[in-house]
Every structure is written in C-alpha cells, then in structure tokens.
Design a binder for these strands. Structure first.
Lengths: 192, 192
DNA sequence: GTCTATATTTCGATAGAC
DNA sequence: GTCTATCGAAATATAGAC
C-alpha cells in the first residue's frame, strides 16, 4: 500500500454529497450548482470529474447494481424457487444494512434511474434493468403461483422492512438485530 | 342522476394522461407540453384547469392520500398492534388492486411527491406526510420490537407484492386471486 | 375553454484562463 | 483541477386574442 490515508478522492466526495442531495430533494430537483457549492467549489469543477449529471446518477446506480448482482450470483439461472430466492434475499439483507443510503436513493428516484436503462447510454455496461430481471424470474411457470407471489412479497418485506427501520423509530436498535428479525420474517413468508 | 354519461371532464382526462406519463417517464421528465399534446391541445389549455404542474401532481397524490386515510380510519389512534395493522392492510389491499396506477405513480416518484409536503403549499389541506405517519406508528414502544419490524415488513410485502404482480408476469391471474394470496402472506407475517 | 405568442428563469454543458 | 463567463436549450408560466 503506497498511500492508505483516509483521503477520499474528490470524485468520491462528489458522489457522497450527490447521494445525500438525491435522497433529500430528489435527482431532478438537485442542480449541479448545489452539489458543487456543498463541496465548496464551482460547477465546472464537477464537470472535470463527471461528463454529465446523468453520469453521477449512473455511478451511484452502478453501486446498487453491483450489490444486487452479487446477491444474484448466489443462485444459478436455472429454476429459481423459494429456497434459491431466500439465499438471494439473505445476501441482500447484508448488503442493505451496510449500504442503506444508496438503496434509499434508488427507492426514492426509481423513475429517474430507470430512464438510464431506457436510454441505455454506455453508463451501465450491458447491465439489465433490475425490475426486468425480477419480473423474468417471477414469471417462471414452473414455480407454483402461490410461491411466486410469496417471493414477490418477501422482496418487498426485506426492502421496506430494512428501509423503514432506517428512520428514527428504530435508531436505538443495532442493525444486526434488525437484520435478524427481518431474516426471520422472510423465512416465515417463504415457509422454510 | 341528471347526466350519467361516461363523459369524463377535461380535468380528469388531464389527470389520466399525466398519471400515465408520470409512471412511464417520471414526474420531472414529463413536460406540460407532452401532457397537452397527448390530449390534442395546447399547453396553455392545461393551465386553465391547473394552476401549476405541481398542482397536477398534488391532485394525483391526494387520491393516494384519501385511499390511505380511508385505510387508516379502520383503526383508532390508540395503541396499534399487529391486529389493527392487519385490518388496515386488509383495506389497503382492496384499494391497491383497484387503484394500482396511482400507487405506482407514488412509488416511482417518491422524491417529487414528498417535496410537495416539504414545501407544504396549500395543495394538501393539512395532510401529514404518509411516511411520517407510518414512522410514528412504528415508533410506539408499547409494541414489542419484533412485532413492529413485522408490521414494517408486512407493509412492504403488500405494496411490492401487489405492485410487482401488476406486471406481465401475472397478467393472466385475476386480481382477486392475487389479493387473496397476498392477504394470506400478510397474515402469516403478522402471525394471526 | 382553447389558442398563439412571449416572458422569465433555470439548468446543463462548454470554452478558455490560471 | 479549479476557476469565471457564457451559451443554448428547455421548461414553467403568463398575457391577451378568439
């Protein structure tokens, strides 16, 4: 390690500030001027690090994508039933508690994020839209309807369960404890 | 009934088109020009019916609010445990299947919608932000943590469960059947 | 109620100096 | 890498005729 200092790169500082603002005000109502001023420098400086505003959103979305892809890697692309689904969600819970903010950004700016895929600019290297991927899995007729509905429900339970507990209502509870409770709820749903 | 014709008012037609576009492209990337042209008339005509673009979003959001308020009316404002919560969700499931599109709009434009509350313009008559209301209920220390987490999870299960099943993957399944399956999942989660 | 302008503002993005 | 200055586009909103 040549230099291990805590020195965050300017690029990362931009992403960090943008993440906060995108959660608070939303992507579209956040201007580059605001991002720049929050960091103490000018709009043009931001353009040195990112080619466009969309690129900033794209970079943040890539983080979500990588985490989700990692969770999906747990399962093959054969038939995906409740057991495989549970493994995937199990991994996701871990990622969610250590990366709440990026997921919150995604949740609060779905429309804007999915426009990235629609236009398909080089941002995401052949990445498939998350929602499409999930729909494809849940459409598999080999899995009984009842179970597929429960798979959809369990995804929502995990996402919303952990997202809502990010608020003040649960601030005194350690994240690992929350994760454990959510995992149990998920298991009940999938009848494991 | 003086006139029962299917004649939708122009105002309602605007809301209907806006709803579609807000779901597809997102609130911010939808311009008034697009809304107007989809209806076959001009931008200025839209301004005759709505004071601002925000007002259109506000009107749509009010529909979500009224449905949620109706669901909340099922329960008093005393201690809200799993049983009360289940009653509320039960009502919500009904509203969700007959009003999927407004809820989808809300889900995909959270940031934009919550900015309405933040600025607090006269749009919503003293209405409290939905997210805040839910946080308040889930913060009640009289309800054991485990159950509160499950309440949060069940909300997500219902919302996401019914929302995802709005897609092609379940298009052949009658909504009432989906509702029944989601209700069962919810009951399991709340251990009723 | 709907139209044709037009006013006004804001923002994303670029050029070029330092 | 960061700045100042500016361009150009697009959008919200308004004015006033029909």
């Amino acid at each position: 390690m040549t230099t291990t200092e805590t020195s965050t790169t300017t690029r990362d500082r931009i992403l960090d500030v943008a993440l906060d603002l995108f959660i608070e005000k939303g992507y579209d109502k956040t201007s580059l001027r605001e991002i720049a001023e929050a960091l103490g420098f000018s709009k043009a400086a931001v353009y040195y690090h990112f080619a466009s505003k969309e690129d900033i959103l794209g970079a943040l979305h890539m983080q979500v994508h990588e985490l989700m892809d990692a969770a999906f890697e747990r399962i093959g692309d054969a038939e995906i039933g409740p057991e495989q689904w549970a493994k995937m969600l199990d991994a996701m819970i871990g990622y969610l508690i250590s990366n709440r903010r990026v997921f919150m950004m995604y949740e609060r700016n779905r429309a804007a994020v999915e426009q990235l895929h629609a236009k398909g600019g080089g941002h995401l290297n052949g990445k498939v839209d998350l929602e499409d991927e999930l729909q494809r899995i849940l459409a598999d007729p080999r899995v009984p309807l009842r179970l597929r509905v429960r798979m959809a429900c369990s995804l929502g339970a995990v996402m919303t369960g952990l997202m809502m507990t990010a608020g003040d209502a649960f601030s005194s509870v350690p994240p690992t404890k929350l994760a454990k409770l959510v995992r149990e709820a998920m298991a009940d749903l999938l009848a494991l």
